[in-house]
């Protein structure tokens, strides 16, 4: 059943922009996610193969920080390699990005779930969690997907780090300035399709969304819904 972003207290920071596109919404994690941006899924999937922009702000995400974070994760049965600025896929579909020796970022899958994050949040408490603490990112960060073969070229207009696929391998992480905003870019390809996940300050989400739309225009990029990305991930 179709829902509206205003049916929920938690809303994507760009829900007004998505409504203006004629997006269709569905409930994900107690808020409304745009599952399409006004076109058929097949057309949006094709768009996402060339250059698509997708609001992923409703998806589950979080993290942990502190000098004992790696050790604590290991105690909880979560294995993540030591190399920073890399993302490690997990069996439940989550992706764990190591941001520094003492910090990880956990991104759920495209359904909005992250069994690992739920488990870790349930296991953490002040006493057992000495030396590590949760870093909630659901409200402080917005999250956008940038997909398709022109995504690397598009980022060259916004960012000083070379994110082109031949220079920036799958599952590398860049913490840098994007359109003059500090953010995190993670390359996490969907099937065969080049794909980046961008996290930045949610208070500046409308600005960033506008920058992405503007930068994508040159490559005929356009917004797409979550269903298009789910299709790409299937193959």
């Amino acid at each position: 059943m179709a829902v509206a972003p205003t049916d929920f207290r938690r809303r994507s920071p760009v829900y007004r922009e998505l409504e203006a596109l004629g997006a269709e919404f569905a409930e994900v994690n107690g808020s409304a996610a745009a599952i399409s941006c006004g076109r058929e899924v097949a057309a949006e999937t094709e768009q996402a193969r060339t250059l698509g922009l997708c609001d992923l702000s409703a998806l589950r995400r979080g993290g942990f920080k502190g000098w004992r974070t790696s050790e604590w994760l290991r105690e909880e049965g979560v294995e993540v390699d030591d190399e920073s600025n890399r993302a490690y896929p997990q069996t439940d579909g989550s992706l764990i990005a190591r941001l520094s020796p003492g910090e990880v970022l956990i991104l759920g899958d495209l359904s909005g779930a992250s069994a690992i994050l739920e488990k870790l949040m349930a296991a953490w408490n002040m006493a057992a969690g000495e030396g590590t603490y949760p870093v909630p990112r659901a409200d402080t960060n917005c999250c956008f997907g940038v997909t398709g073969r022109f995504a690397g070229a598009m980022f060259a207009k916004l960012c000083g780090v070379d994110l082109r696929p031949e220079k920036f391998a799958n599952r590398l992480v860049a913490q840098t300035s994007i359109a003059r905003l500090n953010g995190i870019v993670i390359r996490a390809d969907l099937g065969e399709t080049l794909s980046y996940t961008l996290l930045t300050d949610s208070a500046s989400a409308s600005y960033m969304w506008g920058c992405l739309i503007d930068a994508a225009d040159e490559f005929a990029g356009a917004p797409v819904g979550l269903d298009a990305l789910r299709k790409l991930a299937e193959r």
Partner: peptide, 17 residues
């Protein structure tokens, strides 16, 4: 732009520092 090498992140524009 000047480039500085961050020990954690590698080469970055000086405006990030």
């Amino acid at each position: 732009m000047k480039i500085m090498v961050c020990p954690l992140n590698g080469p970055r524009n000086i405006s990030e520092f």
